[in-house]
Design a binder for these strands. Structure first.
Lengths: 146, 146
DNA sequence: CTGTGTGCAAAACGTTTGCATGCCT
DNA sequence: AGGCATGCAAACGTTTTGCACACAG
């Protein structure tokens, strides 16, 4: 996502209105590396903006997504998660605690589709999800077969 | 997923009962490359087994997932999709028509986490999702800026 | 002043659960 | 015969929608 300032400019330019709620959402997202869900944002926002509604959070996330200013992540089957970081990066998900780590690495080298597919699919983007365990969870799990 | 025969053997061995519904689900999944959702399976199954219920489909998918006989895919934020193909492969999703293509290629070479993360995360598995357009959709979309 | 954006409540959607009945073993 | 599996209906959490009011432009 661009800076709050730039986002405001973009939205204005496109005829969107800048409301206090939208501003608050932009601010909550700027530099946010927690891959929040709509609800997490809502809860965080409510502290400073007690009147904000779920609807507005959803609406604004949708708008930002449509404008390509945030990414919707397909890592959590339970709920949608959003990432304002548009730079090329990937994610590692701890299957134990659910923590999502950013993986900054350029893997694009060598990631080309096999010949058969090259003729029937044009890749615009790709995402790599690493599944495993963070060391926190690996160490705390000393031994149990449940 | 193993063959229906083998799955039946595995389940029997573990004390699960082999019901006509479960058999039908195994058969519907065997060799299925459509990455079906629970609902798609349910609809397909109902043709031959009009009495089958959503609950049973969900239950059985869960069982197969727990046994590691099918994979749950994180590609569609709307609903969970299942893949009986356990061989190492990835997916390409057409953002236009939603078609999901299998990508058979060994990308593991060179896909290691950056140093900082290596110490805090242990990768068990990874999945690559390619996003783009299938040529079908690319060609039918001759021109429009909407 | 106009119309987009907001917030509420209700609905929709995919999925899970509780429970009585059925049927595999 | 016993107990797990089934199917129904209700509950659940997330997301969407309809609508009256508010407020940014």
């Amino acid at each position: 996502m661009k800076s709050v300032q730039q986002i405001v400019a973009v939205l204005k330019e496109k005829g969107y209105k800048i409301t206090p709620q939208r501003l608050a959402i932009f601010e909550a997202l700027e530099g946010n590396t927690s891959h929040p869900s709509a609800e997490q944002l809502f809860i965080a926002l409510r502290k400073k903006h007690p009147t904000i509604s779920f609807t507005t959070v959803y609406n604004t996330l949708q708008t930002l997504k449509d404008l390509g200013e945030i990414r919707e992540l397909a890592i959590d089957p339970e709920r949608r998660r959003y990432d304002p970081d548009l730079s090329s990066h990937h994610h590692a998900i701890c299957s134990e605690c659910g923590a999502i780590f950013d993986v900054y690495a350029n893997f694009s080298h060598g990631l080309t589709l096999p010949e058969e597919l090259k003729n029937s699919f044009i890749v615009k983007d790709f995402e790599i999800n690493f599944y495993g365990r963070c060391t926190n969870c690996s160490s705390s799990e000393t031994s149990h077969e449940v």
